[in-house]
Design a protein around this nucleic acid. Structure first.
Length: 433
DNA sequence: TCTGGGGTCCTTCAGCTC
DNA sequence: TCTGGAGCTGAAGGACCC
C-alpha cells in the first residue's frame, strides 16, 4: 500500500488504470512512464489554510471581493456547493452564503511555489513549470538513483506535504498530455499511473472536453459533428477534423486522441510578452480617465520589462467595452523599448486613433510583445531626446521604488486628489481597483 | 450569471517585396 | 512596363490555459 493511502487517505485509482503494480511477467506498470505531472490541490486556498487552520474543513474561496471579482481558488468544501474558479464572486456568495472569502496574497503563493519547485529540481533538472502550482517533470534520469517513476511520485508527494504543508496530486504516464489528464482524474491528494499499454483504454472513454486545447467553442464544434468522446475523435478521418478546426488544431487533437504527444519536458524559455490590464470598478466613458490608466499600465509594463532586463518592440492596446466585446490594436516600433513614456505614447496614439467618443469602456490593457534582451535591443535616439532621457529617469524611479517601496515616485498625473494631479486642480477621476 | 488577469498559440487578412 | 504568385511580416481577433 502506498504511503499516501496510509497517511492521507489518498485516492489512488486502481481500476483499469492503476498505481504502479507488477504484471505477471514482472514488468512494472510505470515502466516507460517517465513523465510526471504534479498539480497542487486548490493551491491558493491551501496556502492560506496553512496559517488559518481554524478554517480547515470550511468552504473557503480566494478572490477579489470587489463588485467585479471572480473566484481565484476554492477549497474542495466550497466546490461541493458548485463553486469553481473563474466564477463571479457574486454568484459564489449566492451558492454558499457562509463561504469564507480571503483576499489573494500572491507574494505568499510565489514563496510556497518556489519551495515546491525546489523539491522538483532536487529530483530532476528537467522541470517545466506551467504555473505557480503545477509542473511537468521528466524523471527518466532519476530512476536509477531514486527508484521507478511511481515511487518518485510518492516521494514528491511526501516531501511537498512535509516541507510545504500542502497536498498535491501526481499523474505518471508516457507523455505530458496523458500525465496531465491522469493528475486531473486523481485529484485531490492522489497518484495515478497510466501504463503505456493502457493509454488508449484510458483516453477513449473520456469526454472530448478532457483534451488539452478543447474549450467551450471547440467542444461545440465537435459536438455538432456528433463527437462526444476522445474515442470518437480518434475514429474520425483527419480531413474532417482539419476542415472543422483548421490544420493545426485538427492534427493536434487527432494525435492526442491516439495518445501521441511528442513534446519533451523543457525548462522554461524567455517570456514572449509582458502586459497588464485593469477592469474598472464601473464602466468609464471619460477619455482622460482612460489615458491616465494607460499611463499607469504603461509605466507598470515598462517597470516589469526593466526588472527582467527585457525590451519590447510591439505595443498592443486592448479595450473591452461595456458589452464585453474586445478589440486590440498594435503598433511595431522601429526598435524595442523598456521606457514607459514610449510605451504610453504608442498606446495612447492607438487609443486616440480609435476615435471613440464617449464609448463605455470596461477594461483597458497594455502589452509589450516581441520581447528581446534590453542589452541587445538597438536604441533609437529621438531627435529631441536629451543625453539623459526618460530611460535614465525611469531607471532612477526603479531605484527609488526598490528603496522606498512601490509607488514612492509617480508621474504627477497619477497622483491622487488633494495635490497637483496634472489636471490643473480638477478632481481626480476614480482610480481603477 | 455576468464574466479577473497574465499569458500562449493559431488563423486570417492585408500589404509589401521579389 | 505590367501582372500574378509566393513568401514574409505585421495586425487583429479568437480560443485556450491556469
Amino acid at each position: 500500500m502506498s504511503r499516501s493511502q496510509i497517511t492521507r487517505g489518498a485516492r489512488v485509482t486502481q481500476s483499469d488504470v492503476s498505481a504502479a503494480r507488477r504484471s505477471p511477467d514482472g514488468r512494472r506498470d510505470d515502466d516507460g512512464c517517465p513523465i510526471l505531472h504534479v498539480d497542487m490541490d486548490a493551491f491558493f486556498a491551501s496556502c492560506e489554510l496553512r496559517s488559518r487552520p481554524d478554517l480547515v474543513g470550511l468552504p473557503v474561496i480566494v478572490g477579489g471581493d470587489g463588485s467585479r471579482g471572480v473566484v481565484t481558488a476554492a477549497t474542495y468544501e466550497a466546490r461541493t456547493y458548485g463553486i469553481h474558479s473563474a466564477m463571479p464572486m457574486s454568484r459564489a456568495k449566492r451558492l454558499c452564503p457562509d463561504v469564507v472569502i480571503l483576499p489573494p496574497d500572491f507574494a505568499l503563493y510565489s514563496e510556497v511555489s518556489a519551495g515546491v519547485m525546489a523539491v522538483f529540481r532536487d529530483i530532476t533538472p528537467l522541470v517545466e513549470p506551467l504555473s505557480l502550482d503545477e509542473a511537468f517533470l521528466d524523471v527518466s534520469g532519476a530512476v536509477r538513483r531514486l527508484g521507478p517513476p511511481a515511487v518518485i511520485a510518492e516521494q514528491i508527494r511526501a516531501r511537498v506535504h512535509d516541507e510545504q504543508g500542502i497536498t498535491c496530486t501526481v499523474g505518471v504516464a508516457p507523455t505530458k498530455f496523458v500525465a496531465k489528464l491522469a493528475s486531473t482524474r486523481a485529484k485531490p491528494d492522489g497518484l495515478l499511473v497510466v501504463p503505456s499499454d493502457r493509454v488508449i483504454a484510458f483516453l477513449h472513454p473520456l469526454p472530448v472536453g478532457a483534451l488539452w486545447g478543447v474549450g467551450e467553442k471547440t467542444e461545440e464544434v465537435l459536438l455538432r459533428l456528433g463527437l462526444t468522446t476522445v474515442g470518437d475523435i480518434a475514429h474520425t478521418p483527419l480531413d474532417t477534423l482539419v476542415r472543422a478546426l483548421g490544420p493545426a488544431s485538427g492534427q493536434h487533437l487527432h494525435d492526442l486522441s491516439w495518445g501521441r504527444d511528442p513534446r519533451h519536458v523543457t525548462p522554461p524559455a524567455a517570456e514572449k510578452s509582458v502586459g497588464n490590464e485593469e477592469t474598472f470598478p464601473r464602466d468609464v466613458d471619460d477619455p482622460e480617465v482612460i489615458r491616465r490608466e494607460l499611463l499607469r499600465l504603461s509605466e507598470k509594463v515598462a517597470s516589469r520589462l526593466r526588472a527582467q532586463g527585457y525590451a519590447g518592440r510591439t505595443v498592443v492596446l486592448k479595450v473591452r467595452f461595456a458589452d464585453f466585446s474586445t478589440i486590440t490594436r498594435s503598433r511595431t516600433l522601429r526598435s524595442a523599448t523598456d521606457v514607459g513614456r514610449e510605451i504610453y505614447a504608442t498606446a495612447v496614439a492607438l487609443y486616440d486613433a480609435l476615435g471613440l467618443q464617449r464609448a463605455r469602456i470596461r477594461l483597458v490593457g497594455v502589452r509589450a510583445e516581441g520581447i528581446v534582451d534590453a542589452d541587445e535591443a538597438p536604441r533609437q535616439m529621438l531627435l529631441d531626446e536629451p543625453e539623459v532621457g526618460w530611460r535614465e529617469a525611469e531607471q532612477a524611479v526603479d531605484r527609488a521604488s526598490a528603496r522606498f517601496g512601490r509607488g514612492s515616485v509617480l508621474p504627477a498625473r497619477l497622483l491622487g486628489t488633494g495635490g497637483d494631479d496634472g489636471y490643473g486642480g480638477a478632481p481626480a477621476p476614480p482610480r481603477p481597483r
